[in-house]
Design a protein around this nucleic acid. Structure first.
Length: 380
DNA sequence: CAACCTTTGAAGCGC
DNA sequence: GCGCTTCAAAGGTTG
């Protein structure tokens, strides 16, 4: 784990992070576990057991067992020494980068959150439990979205407990682009003389993803009925409508066959840099009046390297929490599940253009980026 | 309208 | 175990 106070590891890379996670996991586990009661965790455990029982592949079983074992052993290990850092229901994490680690009671299904409140305060409501960068502004946590009877859909993971689902049973909320992390560095708004070759103007509103109501209700939903940003329609957002239409263009059997195996796609959890990009993108857009993501990402890549270890550590830590939660929510999921689609496309493309010296598109893009060499200071 | 571009990091895969 | 590949987000651009 990245050293928050500058002590220890030099490398914030994935491997070191994971190793450090194992070594320094006690603190993290305590933080996480303080969100659950013992009975909650027992529920989680039993549900995970159920998950492994209904899982088909050995890999699924293996991961489910591992998760179950890990979670339960962690629970048993730390249940008695979990630091109680609650203040008015909001956990005060010792590490200030994660005010959202422990969700206050309003996040729980039975919490006092008013379902009618669409605009909620940052961090507290309407956002991803671990990434306040992910708004759920179009999600209406009406009771119809909350499976209180344990109703099970095909392919649904039964391990989802109410406690964990509480993490995701978030009311509508909106995050302003200016939302910051507690200790997040603030970049001054420059008089940016950036020349943008691609576009101009700042789009009103946030660039953060917005999950449409219909999307959530149809397939952007965690199997438990809890929407999660990691869950997207089977073919992705752009193919969403196409998917429905195509069914009617095919024979009934074909459509049925095609429809059945398609499950909501569970996306990979975001890594540290992705989380950083999500948070800072709007800021860079505002500062540099840029909209083209490739250029923005280059800026963000440089800024990422310019961050201090401590600043990066916040995101590595958050990413680790993301992975943890993702693993708990989808024990049977593997990155392999989303493998192959682009790979096949790329392979086909390489076969087609194996004799070509280079990609004109890439050269064009590089040329376009060369036009941006006169970035203003804040955009470097 | 799918694919591309661009970034870093995590994970999968093949050897 | 190492190196390569793929995918995660984003949205303008391209074909």
């Amino acid at each position: 784990m990245p050293q928050l106070n500058g002590g220890g590891g030099d490398d914030l890379g994935a491997n070191d992070e994971m190793i450090a996670f194992k070594d320094e996991g006690d603190h993290e586990e305590k933080i996480r576990e303080s969100a659950f009661t013992e009975s909650d965790l027992a529920d989680l455990k039993s549900s995970l057991v159920s998950e492994t029982e209904i899982s088909q592949s050995p890999a699924v079983i293996r991961r489910g067992q591992q998760d179950e074992q890990r979670i339960y052993s962690d629970k048993r290990e730390h249940l008695d020494d979990v630091p109680k850092h609650h203040d008015g229901g909001m956990y005060k994490a010792p590490y200030s980068g994660y005010p959202f680690l422990m969700l206050p009671e309003p996040y729980l299904p039975n919490g006092p959150v008013s379902p009618s409140s669409n605009k909620v305060s940052v961090v507290q409501q309407g956002m991803h439990p671990l990434t306040p960068l992910l708004p759920y502004e179009h999600f209406n946590p009406s009771p119809t979205h909350m499976p209180t009877d344990g109703g099970q859909k095909p392919g649904v993971h039964r391990h989802q407990t109410q406690e964990i689902s509480g993490f995701y049973s978030l009311p509508q909320g909106q995050i302003t682009p200016s939302m910051n992390w507690p200790n997040q560095p603030v970049y001054p708004l420059p008089s940016c003389g950036f020349r943008q070759p691609f576009s101009s103007g700042l789009q009103s509103g946030s660039s953060y993803p917005r999950f449409s109501h219909s999307l959530m209700l149809q397939s952007g939903m965690h199997p438990t009925g809890i929407p999660h940003p990691a869950i997207v329609p089977p073919s992705g957002k752009q193919e969403h409508d196409q998917f429905d239409r195509s069914i009617y263009n095919k024979s009934h059997a074909e459509a049925k066959r095609e429809k059945e195996p398609k499950k909501p796609v569970i996306k990979k959890p975001l890594n540290a840099f992705m989380l950083y990009m999500k948070e800072m993108r709007a800021k860079v857009i505002a500062e540099c009046t840029l909209k083209e993501s490739a250029a923005i990402n280059q800026i963000l890549g440089r800024r990422w390297h310019a961050l201090t270890r401590e600043e990066q550590a916040k995101y590595y830590e958050l990413a680790r929490k993301e992975r943890q939660l993702h693993m708990q929510l989808y024990p049977s999921w593997s990155a392999r599940d989303n493998y192959g689609k682009k790979k096949r496309r790329k392979r086909d493309k390489q076969q087609d253009s194996s004799t070509e010296p280079g990609s004109p598109k890439k050269c064009r893009a590089r040329f376009g980026l060369n036009q941006q060499t006169d970035w203003c200071g804040p955009c470097r």
